[in-house]
Design a binder for these strands. Structure first.
Lengths: 224, 224
DNA sequence: GGATAAATTAATTCATTGATTAATTTAAAT
DNA sequence: ATTTAAATTAATCAATGAATTAATTTATCC
């Protein structure tokens, strides 16, 4: 349908295209994102990316110049535009900590629906120490998103809205661990449990239940 | 000092060593583990590993044969021996789901204390789709650990010990996301929040509080 | 129709990587 | 003292990677 399928579709004819012949540059970004997420940025060769997209490696040089610029384009044109709105949303979403956490979880879910490669790329290239996106993402999103959340949780704690024992900053870590992390590992969980879906809706309702009351049985509290 | 420091220490003298000249093979495993965790297995070159250990790449060939065998040795001699006991412990630890979760968290904490590179290696090479340890670890640990936990949570659910809305299998995912994941991202959390430590004890008590009663405000559920 | 611009390929260059081997050095065994 | 075994280095090879360039093909503009 979109002039260019992911796999074995015959490539675009050589020569200058007539009018709008499909967004090859954008397609290359998508293919590169998938490869980067799957094998890691450093281990994903331009040859492999080009092959997966049905073009020659020279096309990547034509559209992006070099590998580093390709990575930057991916972050600038796919990652940031989708993450920035979430940051703004979370600055004022929800009243209670639980509502704020819910807004975060839903926001992440929405982004993942649009950019399925994001969770894996995040844990590979941002979370870990030698990650290639570390410095870049750090300057662009990190200063804002965790800070905003942590500050709002801290305010809630001062207002007595946060259970004792919960650390406002570590709560941000926990939230990411309960949302991005399961999404990044979706394939392995499905394989481990023989689940067909591990669909995001099921994960979402489970996570919200866990955040809501933890593992405590609401009806019969075990006496102790 | 164990005969061989991590960085710039002068290398062992050439020639056959006298008696016990330190465990170079084991040291190479440790250095390789750190490099693998930092940049990913595929992106960590044998040259870099050898350089970090103060030896020539030929030593890696001498002790392990090739890169694949090095990875297998690392898994077989460092990873599995530390993970297997945890699986056995968790088969019978704790009575309630909360206690079981606590046992898991403490077990992970203990392993991470011994193998600080494990969390990052896990998220890079096991969690994600193109991970190099995927198949190997899957055969060795995955079938048991998640299954054991999920089955025990399922039994607790049938006994009415698990809050409604909590999925026994997804709870396993949540637990990993609340323990291994924060450990893997420790550097970035510390940097994001300007925390000195993100020490495991603080993380542990926070996580256990979250698992215990979630984000429920103390006003609605105040024992005593 | 000819010139120009856009898009693509094939081929090439240079650096890096994994892997290997032939010496070399030293300790242990005989 | 001679031989053997263990450990290490330097040098090298083939394969792969990123990056580049010179053609080639096709559409558009005048």
């Amino acid at each position: 349908m979109p002039a260019r399928a992911t796999n074995k579709t015959r490539r675009r004819r050589v020569g200058r295209p007539a009018g709008d012949d499909g967004d090859l540059r954008g397609h290359l970004l998508d293919v590169a994102a998938a490869q980067f997420a799957c094998t890691g940025i450093a281990a994903a060769s331009l040859r492999t990316i080009a092959q997966a997209a049905g073009v020659t490696p020279a096309m990547l040089h034509y559209y992006f110049g070099n590998k580093d610029a390709l990575v930057r384009a991916l972050v600038g044109e796919r990652l940031l535009p989708n993450v920035r709105p979430l940051v703004e949303t979370l600055a004022s979403a929800g009243e209670t900590p639980l509502e704020l956490a819910q807004a975060f979880a839903q926001g992440v879910s929405g982004i993942v629906a649009k950019l399925p490669w994001l969770p894996a790329l995040w844990v590979r290239e941002v979370l870990c120490e030698g990650g290639a996106l570390r410095e870049f993402v750090f300057r662009e999103v990190m200063p804002s998103l965790p800070q905003v959340l942590a500050q709002r949780f801290e305010a809630a704690r001062r207002a007595g809205q946060l259970a004792p024992g919960i650390d406002p900053r570590l709560l941000v870590v926990s939230l990411v661990g309960l949302t991005l992390f399961p999404a990044a590992g979706a394939p392995i969980w499905q394989k481990a449990f023989g689940m067909p879906g591990l669909d995001m809706p099921a994960l979402m309702s489970h996570t919200l239940a866990l955040l809501g009351h933890g593992l405590a049985t609401p009806s019969t509290e075990t006496p102790r």
